[in-house]
Amino acid sequence: MIEQLRKLFPSLLIYTTEDGALDASYKWFISGNNDIIGIHQTELTEKDQAMLNAFLSPYNINFPPMTDEERRWKKAIDQAEEHPPFTFPSAIPYRFIYFSINKNQITPVFFHEAIQELFEKPVPILWENEFEGIIIEEESTSEDTPSYEQMIDILMSDLYVKITFFIGPFRKGFESIQPYYRSVISDAKKAFAYSDKTVITYIDAVPYLLIDQTDLAFRQQLVKNVLQEFIDDEDTLKMLETFVHSNLNISETAKELHLHRNSLQYRLDRFFEKTGIDVRQFHQAMPVYLAMLAKK
């Protein structure tokens, strides 16, 4: 197909990573084989562009040029259902890390360059749009790689960019890779609707995902039955949330809320007296936590 296109558009070239940045005087597309091809704009009429857009995917030059590995991953994800099981690239467990960056704070090219500096070896990044995408991280024993929380601080202080990460579970093999890819993105969006944390793991997100699957009537009932007269008592709800996040540890919660330990004990006793729920017990704290999530 490319040779046929080249006959029509002699300027056609295929991008290789050695070429560096993409030339802005070309229009760029991704072919069915995941090659990035460019045609000089002077050779393209509007009609040509419309036609090429119809059977090739336009490629945004604001994105960094895809590496060979990124192209292979993209192909694996896009075509997995047609050609399972996919055998590339190795048996090392991997996970998808969803990231989201604030608009107008950093270009994908700068982001790509900075992220590569944080890992021991190059990591593939697949972009959904200019503000979100997936980092593909292989399991590593390197102690040098910073945590995702640290990465946020590094990039925030050095590049002035606000980032959130959702860390998908590790996987081995490439079966159902496309649903995995899609679920990481959709789980991330659900999780960030419930939490203002900047890094959320799949395990952290499980309660959010469970609550999100329930219908509105169930959630309303849960909130009413569990929180009872404290349903709109923001101070008590904040105390309970902090208590759960502090692993039901009274000293830590008191410190966090700048409360005296005895005052906190008193408030927990009061919640018990009024609701019959002793949040100091894990199995009773759990429904309270779920009810607070349902309220969100």
């Binding site: 500096e117 944080l118 021991e120 040098d144 790689t145 910073p146 945590s147 929380e149 640290q150 990465m151 601080d153 590094i154 925030m156 202080s157 002035y160």
Partner: peptide
């Protein structure tokens, strides 16, 4: 800006 985590680019 300077933040709590003084983590640096580990390979630079």
């Amino acid at each position: 800006m300077v933040f709590q985590n003084y983590a640096l680019y580990p390979h630079m």
